[in-house]
Write a protein that binds this DNA or RNA. Structure first.
Lengths: 216, 216
DNA sequence: GCAAAAGTGTTCGGCGTACACCCATGC
DNA sequence: GCATGGGTGTACGCCGAACACTTTTGC
């Protein structure tokens, strides 16, 4: 760093983690209820101050694990906000990340205070600070990532049907997709490949199972 | 911010500004020579600590103005690095930005120490800290931005010829482009529009001048 | 009239999109 | 045998890429 100037400021640095999941065809985000000032009683994106010796990414991974019990999933830096808490006199810098988790692997932290809870993205309550903006940026980024990466691997179990995959895409994009076009496009990417297994359920033809090639 | 945890760290927060320009068909980046520890004598991306009461963006704007005298140009946040200066005991957080400037509007700071200087992107010297990584990310982002935004407005005077615009694109993308396809594609975007003016130079047909519609 | 850069159209392949029917199974 | 979701093929429009000649000017 090129610290040419004196008069440096020592703001607090925190990470925020926007955690998305898709359940029953609905895109959801994990929020916590603040049970201490500032913004007591309001809902907010989970986050916390950097601890000693931690890198930014380590802090984000830790936060994600604390809230969901999940590790080793899609996690990417989003944006850094310099003015999330205007009340803070010496300023605060919030490094926002976003993560995608498979709802089946999640065990939410069972706290009474700061109780974490999933919210449908279309029904989020008013949020503390400028967390709405953070959420908007995260959602936009998620939509873009989905188009040209295999980010969805992180929202599904290792094996899944085409229908399950399409449900995830439709939930995130917020619109229905054509089944035939979807299959063709996804198979053309090499993100996924068919397995030799099938899943039978209900009185209809069994569905072939696929897996992400980036995993095993 | 959701400061749930104690043991908070107070790292220094700095901004880095990767300043690009295109001169004579070459993509160049502004570097400064560090004349004080840490990393004395090495070249680095210009930056400095956040000053009191400043937002991150204000600090980036200030840095850009200090180094180039230029304001009101393309400036966008890039990425935040948590470990740029491993020597720093309490950690340091560097918020990197990238900027595009028109070489004709620039007046480089005339310092003897920290003397700023343009470097061809293919000939940058070894850099302090992990600044090579920052530069790589900035270059990748620049290439992407160019594809679907009018970011190039910031690298050219208000009026310019198609050839000048194409030179900028070729310098950034690092490959030659087809003149006819380039004109068609750019005019289709609505980023630029023809003016009624021409520029004569040399013994050949005069070139029509264009301008970015986002400016004036 | 010639050198030099500006300006202009067409063809082709790939990709996203729209769209409807047969298949395998359980009951 | 029928209800239920799984699975498949074709046609079209758009866009990016390849490619060569004419126009306008200064000397």
């Amino acid at each position: 760093m090129t610290t040419e100037t004196s008069e440096a400021r020592r703001p607090t640095v925190a990470v925020l983690v926007v955690i998305f999941t898709v359940v029953d065809g609905a895109l959801q985000v994990l929020l916590i209820e603040r049970s201490a000032p500032p913004a007591e009683g309001q809902w907010a994106i989970p986050g916390g101050a950097l601890q000693h010796g931690e890198t930014l990414e380590q802090a984000a991974v830790r936060k994600l694990a604390e809230e969901t019990g999940v590790t080793d999933l899609f996690l990417e830096q989003l944006y850094t906000f310099g003015d999330l808490d205007p009340a803070s006199s010496d300023g605060s810098v919030g490094v926002a990340w976003f993560a995608l988790v498979d709802p089946n692997r999640v065990r939410l932290a069972q706290r009474t205070a700061w109780r974490p809870q999933w919210w449908d993205l279309n029904e989020v309550p008013p949020l503390a600070f400028d967390n709405e903006e953070v959420l908007d940026i995260a959602r936009t980024r998620l939509i873009n990532k989905l188009q040209y990466t295999d980010a969805a691997y992180s929202l599904l179990p290792t094996m899944f049907t085409m229908r399950e995959l399409q449900d995830v895409y439709e939930a995130i994009l917020g619109r229905p997709l054509d089944k035939r076009n979807f299959r063709r496009r996804l198979l053309a990417t090499d993100f996924i490949a068919p397995t030799s297994e099938q899943r039978k359920e209900g009185r209809h033809r069994p569905a072939r199972l696929y897996h992400f090639t980036s995993r095993s």
